[in-house]
Each structure stands twice: as structure tokens, then as C-alpha cells.
Design a binder for these strands. Structure first.
Lengths: 189, 189
DNA sequence: GTCTATACACCGATAGAC
DNA sequence: GTCTATCGGTGTATAGAC
């Protein structure tokens, strides 16, 4: 039952332009707008060309996610290879992570099995890298942090940075100053 | 330029059935599936009837959000009117808030101005209620919490509970045990 | 209050020519 | 590698009968 359609190479200028276009449409207009026609228009090609490079729209969405997360993991490891990784992680989270795109993909994961698996894999992998970097700093400073484990800190930093940015973009500021002051205080410990 | 279509009452059995159906579709299938046909089918009525009760699909979406959040605010105030509101708030957050629906609405808020405003209003109002309840308990216990202000605690409890539930539903568990242990420890202070 | 009929645009996807 | 042509289905929304 497989289609007889010809398929193009996985890494070409046009296919990358389609992945770029998909990211832009997801971020600016949401996943409901991520249609083959809209994305093709955004990339400056004909709608049918999308199906030369990707078998289905689903495959294009998953490819967009994996390309971005592979780059993100490399960038994360690079950013954490410094003296004080905990402070570097906070900087990374608030300046590199795109909260709009994250929410779009997480909402997609609610009802798209392919995206769900990739999101789970990426978050798990990121958190391990982050926890390892935090553990390194805890070890060097040689203090007993009790229930404040590296994994718990990784989770907290991730979720606070994500929600802070998402809420700010939504026009919510209630409590943000207080949380930022608390983070600042905690990072100086 | 306004339409001459007749409109039905704002609060009837059928309009409420449509709001219920919209919630179910949003939760189970995502906002892209929240179409007039799909929602009408879910409510057991004809597609065109949606437009008797709601001017546009956008209006139906906003109405679904406001009905739910008005009920949620009432429930929140009720749940916090107890002896130890901080512990009660945590219970409320992990058992009442529907993380799937929250993410769907927040993703919608990314690119829907009507939803964005309502989300901002609701989160701000909730946080004020929560911070007031936390401040009450802090006051009774008469301790100096330093940078750990009521507003900061309200934000932290909200974002941790939301992400914990969302990640668990996505199949992510990395760091969850540690965070739950930390919360448990913090709630006992 | 609910029905039928209908408009018109857009959707994913395929086939085959150039 | 990109084009034209095309399919059946679904989207929002309106008008008017029952």
C-alpha cells in the first residue's frame, strides 16, 4: 500500500527552507496554520513540492522538531561547558529556548504520537545533561544540598524559565519580579 | 456589515452541550480539531446549529474558556478557605487543574487575541487569590521568609504542578521524584 | 429551535509532464 | 527538481423553510 511517489533527498536547500518555513509558521501562527500550502508559500515554492521532500505533513512536523532539538542539545552542552554551569544554564534557558515554539510542540504532542515521543526523548535527554552539569558544580562547591538535588534543580530552572517567558509574552506579570528576585538570590546562594 | 442571522439565548441546554463538547474536543484532539463540524457531532447536533448559538468559532472558543475559568476561580477560593491554605493550594493544583486543557488554551493564546486577553486576566486573578492565601498562612506562622514571598510561592507552585502533570502525560519522568520530594519537604518546612 | 441547501475557500495527497 | 492538473473531503458561514 505504499505510494509510488518519487521522493527528494533529506538534506537539500529546498527541504531546509521548508523546515525553516515550518518553524516560522508554527511560532507566528500556530500548528493549525501549519498546512502544506501555507508553508510552501512561506518558503516560496509550490504546495506540491512539500510532498516531494516529505511523505506526509506529519513527517514534516516531526522533522522540524528533530532538526531543532538536535541543534539545541549541541548548543546546551556547549553552553554548560563553563566554570559555573548553574548560572550558565539559567542564561541559556532564558535566552535560547523559544517558549512560543515549545508550547506549540507540547500542545501538538497532546494528540500526535510522533511528536509526543520526540518531545519525551528530548526533554529527558536535556534534563540528564543539565542535572549532570549541576551535580558537577555542587560537587566542586562540596556542600550538602539535602533534598535540593541536581535533577530537582534542573526541573525547577526549566519550568520557571519557560513559564516566565510564556506568561510575559501573554501579558502576565503578576509575581514575576518576586520570582526573578528569588532566582537571583538562589543563584548566589 | 453585521450579519442578519438570528441568534439563540446565551444559556440553554444546547449551548451548554456545545461548550461541553468543545472542552472535550480541545482536551482529546487539540484546537486544530475544534471545528464546527467536529464539535456539533460531539454534541449530537447539526453543524449549522453552532452558528445559531455563537456568532463565530472564535466566540465559541472564548465562551468555552470563560465558562471554565469562572467556575475555576470559585472553586479555588473555596478550596483555599481552610486552615493551611498552602498545602490546600498544592492539592488543588495537582488534582483540579487540567494541564492538557491549559496547554491547549495557552498555545491558542499565542495567536488568538481574544483568548490571550482572557488567559492573562484569569492567571493574574488566580495568582492574586493564591498569593493572598499564602500570605495569610505566612502571617499566622509569623516567620521571616525573606525572598520567598507569597507571590513567588504562588508562581512556583503553579508552574511546577503544571509542568509535572504535563510531562507525566507526555511520558517524561526524569527528575519528577526529586521534585516531588523537594515539594514535600518544602510544604513541611 | 432545528432543519435543508448551499456558497466558496482550503485541506492533504497523488499522477504524470517537462 | 519543479511544474500543472486534479481528486475527494472538510472548513466557516449564511439564508430561508419547517
Amino acid at each position: 500500500m505504499t505510494s509510488k511517489r518519487r521522493m527528494g533527498p533529506q538534506d537539500s536547500a529546498t527541504s531546509n527552507a521548508l523546515l525553516d518555513a515550518t518553524e516560522r509558521v508554527l511560532r507566528e501562527e500556530g500548528y493549525a496554520a501549519a498546512t502544506s500550502r501555507r508553508i510552501a508559500q512561506e518558503a516560496g515554492v509550490k504546495q506540491q513540492l512539500v510532498y516531494y521532500y516529505f511523505r506526509t505533513m506529519d513527517e514534516l512536523l516531526v522533522a522540524t522538531f528533530t532538526r531543532r532539538t538536535q541543534r539545541a542539545l549541541a548548543r546546551l552542552e556547549q553552553d554548560l561547558a563553563v566554570d559555573r554551569p548553574i548560572q550558565a544554564l539559567w542564561q541559556h534557558l532564558v535566552s535560547i529556548v523559544d517558549a512560543r515554539l515549545v508550547f506549540e510542540f507540547v500542545a501538538l504532542a497532546n494528540h500526535n504520537e510522533g511528536i509526543r515521543k520526540e518531545v519525551a526523548r528530548f526533554v529527558t535527554e536535556s534534563r540528564r545533561i543539565e542535572a549532570a552539569a549541576i551535580a558537577r558544580q555542587f560537587g566542586e562547591e562540596g556542600r550538602d544540598t539535602g533534598p535540593i538535588t541536581p535533577s530537582a534543580v534542573a526541573f525547577l530552572m526549566y519550568c520557571v524559565s519557560l513559564l516566565l517567558r510564556r506568561e510575559a509574552a501573554t501579558g502576565i506579570t503578576e509575581g514575576h519580579d518576586d520570582v526573578l528576585a528569588l532566582i537571583d538570590w538562589a543563584l548566589k546562594r
